[in-house]
């Protein structure tokens, strides 16, 4: 099942790279997709399938749009810091612990930290996120829990303090 999905994704990629003009193109594409999915199944999916509910799939586009808005704001903020000749960055490293139910939620939260303004996820040890902030005020968005609630809304899992 997983291999079938990988094959379909690879074939879609093939169709974008090489717009198939004849039966030969399609045949080569299918053969390549099947071979590659068989070869990569060894190391691409070492863990069991993550459970992805339909609700999450519905919420995903909105989440991605939110993150897209976040990254534009973040880039403007970094641009401001970089281009202001008087600015001196005073970076701090903060640790923040959030308990998520799902493994995927932790990954999404670490990415969301990197994307929000002025913060960069350094390391994840268990439930503790080590976050590098360009300035102390940027760290507050992470520690006041508004970001964790957004992730929680997407995953529907419990996110305690």
């Amino acid at each position: 099942m997983r291999r079938a999905r990988t094959s379909v994704a690879l074939f879609a990629f093939w169709c974008i790279i090489v717009p198939p003009r004849g039966i030969l193109d399609v045949a080569v594409g299918v053969a390549t997709a099947l071979t590659l999915s068989a070869w990569t199944s060894r190391f691409l999916w070492p863990q069991p399938d993550p459970f992805v509910s339909t609700l999450r799939l519905v919420r995903l586009p909105r989440f991605m749009l939110t993150m897209g808005a976040h990254i534009v704001v973040a880039a403007s903020q970094v641009l401001w810091v970089v281009l202001d000749p008087r600015s001196r960055v005073a970076p701090v490293v903060v640790r923040h612990t959030v308990r998520f139910g799902a493994e995927g939620a932790r990954v999404a939260f670490a990415h969301a930290i990197t994307i929000t303004p002025g913060t960069l996820a350094l390391d994840v040890v268990g439930d503790t996120f080590v976050v590098h902030c360009l300035d102390e005020r940027f760290g507050r968005a992470v520690s006041d829990g508004s970001l964790a609630r957004e992730i929680e809304r997407l995953f529907g899992a419990s996110a305690g303090p």
């Binding site: 880039a75 970094v78 970089v82 960055v89 970076p91 994307i115 960069l120 590098h132 360009l134």
Partner: peptide, 24 residues
Amino acid sequence: GGTIGLIRLPDLYSRAHAASKCDT
């Protein structure tokens, strides 16, 4: 901005901020 940040900011982690956000 990403380029100037890469050259100007003081340490690796700050440079990673500039490289990840501005460049993307």
